[in-house]
Write a protein that binds this DNA or RNA. Sequence first.
DNA 1: CTGTTAGCGCCTTCAG
DNA 2: CTGAAGGCGCTAACAG
Lengths: 342, 342
Amino acid sequence: MAASIIDVAQAVGVSPSTVSRALRGRDGVSDELRVRIIAVAADLGYTASRNASSLASGRTCSIGVLAPYVGRWFFGTVVDAAERVFSAAGYDLLLYNLGSVDSRKRFFAELPVRKRVDAILSLLIPTEDEAERLRSLGIPLAITVGGPRPGFTTVGIDDRAGAELATRHLVNLGHRRIGRIGTQPSAPLYWTTPDLRRRGYLDVLVDAGIPHDPDLEADGEYTVEGGERAMTRLLTAVRPPTAVFAESDEMAMGALRALRAHRLRVPEDIAIVGFDDHELADVVGLTTVAQPVAEHGTQAASLLLRLLRDDTDVPDHVELPTHLIVRNSTAPHRGSLHGGIE
Amino acid sequence: MAASIIDVAQAVGVSPSTVSRALRGRDGVSDELRVRIIAVAADLGYTASRNASSLASGRTCSIGVLAPYVGRWFFGTVVDAAERVFSAAGYDLLLYNLGSVDSRKRFFAELPVRKRVDAILSLLIPTEDEAERLRSLGIPLAITVGGPRPGFTTVGIDDRAGAELATRHLVNLGHRRIGRIGTQPSAPLYWTTPDLRRRGYLDVLVDAGIPHDPDLEADGEYTVEGGERAMTRLLTAVRPPTAVFAESDEMAMGALRALRAHRLRVPEDIAIVGFDDHELADVVGLTTVAQPVAEHGTQAASLLLRLLRDDTDVPDHVELPTHLIVRNSTAPHRGSLHGGIE
DNA sequence: CTGTTAGCGCCTTCAG
DNA sequence: CTGAAGGCGCTAACAG
C-alpha cells in the first residue's frame, strides 16, 4: 500500500492538514516545517491521491478532450498541442474518442465526465442537444474547429473564405469545370465544416459565372480512401472536371492516388487543391489552403486555462488565419493561355 | 448541483446502498425494485461520481496511456485503436504525452497516475528505472512497440527482421551502396527500435559481403524534416548511395522531398524503402516494410483488459507480423541487369 | 502558524 | 432481499 497523508503526518509529527498545506504550497506553514515535510513526503514516495483530493476540493485538475478520431493527422496534431499546454499547467487529459455514432451517443447519454473534469475541449462540433448537455455541466467549455457558439469559447478558421481561396485559385488559372470532393451535408454526425467549404466553392462559381454541375461534386468522407473513390467517380462524369477542390488534404491525396491509377497527370490533365496543409502535402507537392493546425489546440487550451483562472476578458471566439500555398498540383487550364483572368 | 445517490434513494424510498446495488447490476435487489430505481435515476439524470466510487471501491475504471507524441501518425493510430477497445469495456483513457525529456522526467518523478488508473499502456519503451517505477504501482502494465520485458505484457514486431527484409530487398535489386536513415542509438529517450533496425541493416550488409560505410548512415530523427535533412546529407557523401533504407515512412517521405529538391529521380537515381506502411505510403508509391499499426493498440488493450479480469494464460508477449510491400520507389540498380541475385 | 472537526459521494461490510 | 454504519484519502472551515 502506498503512503497516505497520515503516514507523512505521523512521520513528521504534525497533523494531516499541515502536510496538505505544505505540499500544495499554501501559506500558513513555516518555511522550516515545509522543507521538512516535503523531504519526508519525497522519502516515503507520497503523492496525494487525485481522486480523494478532488472529491474533497471539487477540483479535478483534469480536462476532458472530445475528439472524433485521434488517428487522423489533423486531430492528433490538435490534441497533441493542447496536451502540451494543459500538462504544463498541471492538468491531466481525459481523452474521449467519439468517432462512431454509437460511442458519441453513449457519451452524451451518460456524460462520464461529470465531476471528473474541470473543463472540456471539444474537437467535434456538438449538435444543439449535445451542446445543451455540455452546458449543464457548468464548467468552462471550448470548441476548436468551428464557428462561434453560445456558451462555448471557440477557435476556428473562416472555412467559407478558405474554400473561396482554393476555388478562386482554380478559376484564376482558367478552369471552368471545377469539381469538388467533400462530404454529405447531412452526415450522421453534426459538423458544419463541409457545408461552409461547399458554400465557399459555390460562391466563387457564381461569382465567376460558372453554372453549377452536381455531377462534379462527390463524397470523399474526409478520408484518403474516400477521396480516392470520389475522384474515381468524378472521372466517370460525362464531362469530367479539369480541376478539383478537395476539402481536405487527405482526400486530395486519395484523389492523387486515383489519378495515378488512371494514368492521368497532375497538374497537366487535372489540377488539385487541398485544404489544411498536411505535414505531407509538401512531399507530394500539393497546392493547398493552409491553416495553423497545432495552433487550434494551443489557443483553445490557453483560453480554457484562462477561464479556469477566472481571467476577465477572455475572448469567446478566436479566428485563425488561412492562406493559399501554391505547389505543383495546380497549373493553368490547358485551354487558357495564361492563368490570370481576374 | 447534480443529483447524488441520496437523492435517488429518497425519491424511491430506499437506502443508498440499495440504489448502489441496483444501478451496478449486483444481485440482492428484487427485479421490480431495480426497475424502479433505474427509472428514477434516469429521470433525475443521476450518474455515480467516478471519483467517489473509485475512492470507495479502489477501482478507477481508467487506463493510463503513455505516448511520446500523439500527433505522429503511428502513435495516433495506436492510441485510437486502443481507445476503442477500452471504451467499449467501460474504461476511460488518461493520456500522457511524454514527448519531451522534461515532461517525461516529471511524469516518472511524480507518477500522477498513482491511484488514478487501473492499468497502464505505454507506447514508449521505459528505461530500467522508469520500468521499476511503473512496476511499483502494482497494476497491470503493457508496452506496445517493443520487445519482451519482465513485469510487462508486450506487443511488438521483430524490428531486426523487418529491417533485414528492407535491406535484403535492396541487395537483391543489385544495390551495393545502401544508405540508412535512422537515429542516434544514444538518443536522449531510451528506445530500442532504431538500434534493432540498424542491426538488421548491418546483418544483411555483412551477409552480402558489403563493407560497412559510416558515411552512408544519417540521423533522420524519425520525422519528415529530419529525413529530409538526412537525405540531403547523404547526397554530399564522396560516393553517394544508390539506395536508402529509411527506418520509418515519415523519414522516407522526407528523403523523397530532398531528392525532388535535388532533381533526382526515384527509383531511377536512388531507390528508397521505408518502414511502417504509413497510410500515405501508397499515395507516394513508397516501397515499405508493413506492420499492422492499429493492431498494436488493439492487441495491447485487449491483453490489459484480460489481465484486469484476472484471466489466466494471458501471453506476456505477442509478436505481430511484418511484410515487404513493393511499390514504385525501388528498382534494380542501374549497373545490374536483373534484380534477382540470390 | 498549526490542529480539530466535518464532510466530499460512494461502496462495503455487517446485521436484520 | 434490504438497511445502518464505517471508511476510502483528502481538504476546508473553524478554532486556537
